[in-house]
């Protein structure tokens, strides 16, 4: 009788909330959680107010750690949070092109059936929002965006900018990419 009640407690995340990104400079999820002491300094210094802190909804392991909801407010890569992190959970990066290229928050994935440009209506908003235009994203005919996964840093600016509702371009967070990689490695 007691066990189902214990399972209901949000000690371990019931629903995997995977639509949230970690701030730039974050290491792999396991390493990040080892280092992050939930002090909230990254959220405090964020000029874009895109970082907020997890409550209990994603389990005790995420409690108080920072997250970014890209669709609501994406990271502008000012790197202020990486400069203030006291425990090196976020690696120190500079707000330059090189610093931006070192960020790995996730990878943008385009749904061509939702995208206006692929339906013949020229849009190109995501390309204009991209901090690494020409590298992470290129545009073709009718401003059709093409994401280059090897250069995409997953900041989420394209997802925030997308004028389609629901968004035609989404960021797959790094956590999810790591998990799919792990399952692929297991199966092969």
């Amino acid at each position: 009788m007691v066990l189902p009640l214990i399972e209901k407690l949000p000690l371990v995340a019931q629903v995997k909330l995977r639509r949230f990104l970690r701030p730039p400079g974050a290491q792999k999820e396991a390493l990040f959680l080892q280092n992050c002491i939930a002090c909230g300094q990254c959220a405090n210094v964020c000029p874009n107010q895109c970082i907020d802190l997890y409550g209990i909804e994603a389990g005790l392991e995420n409690l108080g750690t920072p997250r970014i909801t890209a669709r609501a407010q994406a990271c502008i890569l000012c790197m202020a949070c990486t400069q203030v992190c006291p425990t090196d959970a976020l690696e120190k990066l500079e707000p330059t092109k090189e610093g931006k290229r070192a960020v790995q928050m996730g990878i943008a994935v385009l749904s061509e059936d939702l995208c206006y440009s692929f339906a013949g209506r020229t849009c190109g908003v995501c390309y204009r929002a991209c901090p690494l235009p020409g590298e992470a994203m290129t545009i073709g005919l009718f401003e059709q965006p093409h994401v280059h996964a090897e250069h995409c840093i997953g900041c989420g600016l394209c997802e925030q900018a997308c004028i389609k509702m629901p968004q035609a371009i989404r960021i797959i967070p790094r956590l999810e990419l790591e998990e799919t990689e792990a399952t692929k490695a297991e199966s092969s």
Partner: peptide
């Protein structure tokens, strides 16, 4: 302004 921040847990 960036020099100060945090909570009682770890503060600058």
């Amino acid at each position: 302004a960036r020099k100060s921040g945090g909570m009682t847990w770890s503060i600058r």
